[in-house]
């Protein structure tokens, strides 16, 4: 498969993988630690959405499905499919527990991207494409314009019944 096309497809898949898993696991509902609370309220002050801000803060403060997706892809590239993904899931889980997080989102993200990479390898997508794609995906959430991305995350949280009850 053409490399640029492959990266674009991998970025889309990775974006859906980590945003849907993180929202489902309740990242927009409440900040897990104080740092996530500060980030969420700072995003809200700058015109963003509070639930989306909590989502962004939680991603920064502990390895959630975003880190699981990226590390799962790196593990598959370096170690192999599926062993790399399993080892990444274990390491992400340890990282989660060290960051005061129960660890469901991170491990689910690492295992799901391992399955996705295995299936996508049949149509020519490689783990390298998923590594680059995931970096592009996380840049759209954390790296370009927080207020806009937090509003999008907030709308998604409302649709998935995970919107924050805090104010």
């Amino acid at each position: 498969m053409n490399e640029l096309l492959g990266i674009a497809i991998a970025a889309g898949i990775s974006w859906l993988n980590f945003v849907l898993i993180d929202t489902w696991m309740g990242l927009p509902e409440s900040p897990g630690v104080k740092g996530a609370d500060f980030i969420g309220r700072s995003v809200q002050k700058r015109g963003g959405d509070l639930a989306g801000g909590f989502f962004q803060g939680n991603i920064v403060c502990s390895p959630d499905a975003s880190a699981g997706t990226l590390l799962g892809a790196i593990g598959c590239y370096l170690i192999g499919i599926p062993e790399g993904g399993f080892i990444a899931a274990l390491l992400v889980y340890i990282g989660n527990r060290l960051c005061a997080d129960p660890g469901y989102a991170g491990t689910t993200g690492a295992l799901s991207i391992t399955v996705i990479i295995f299936l996508a390898s049949f149509i020519g997508l490689t783990p390298q494409m998923f590594i680059v794609g995931m970096i592009i995906a996380i840049t759209t959430i954390q790296g370009i314009y927080h207020p806009a991305s937090s509003k999008l995350l907030g709308k998604l949280a409302q649709k998935m019944n995970r919107y924050t009850k805090l104010s």
Binding site: W24, P82, I87, L91, Y93, P102
Partner: peptide, 22 residues
Amino acid sequence: RHSWTASAVFPTAIIAMGILAI
């Protein structure tokens, strides 16, 4: 998603898979 209880499926099975892969 809010539970801290260690159960048979999570994290026991995940840890076993990871250690076996290593």
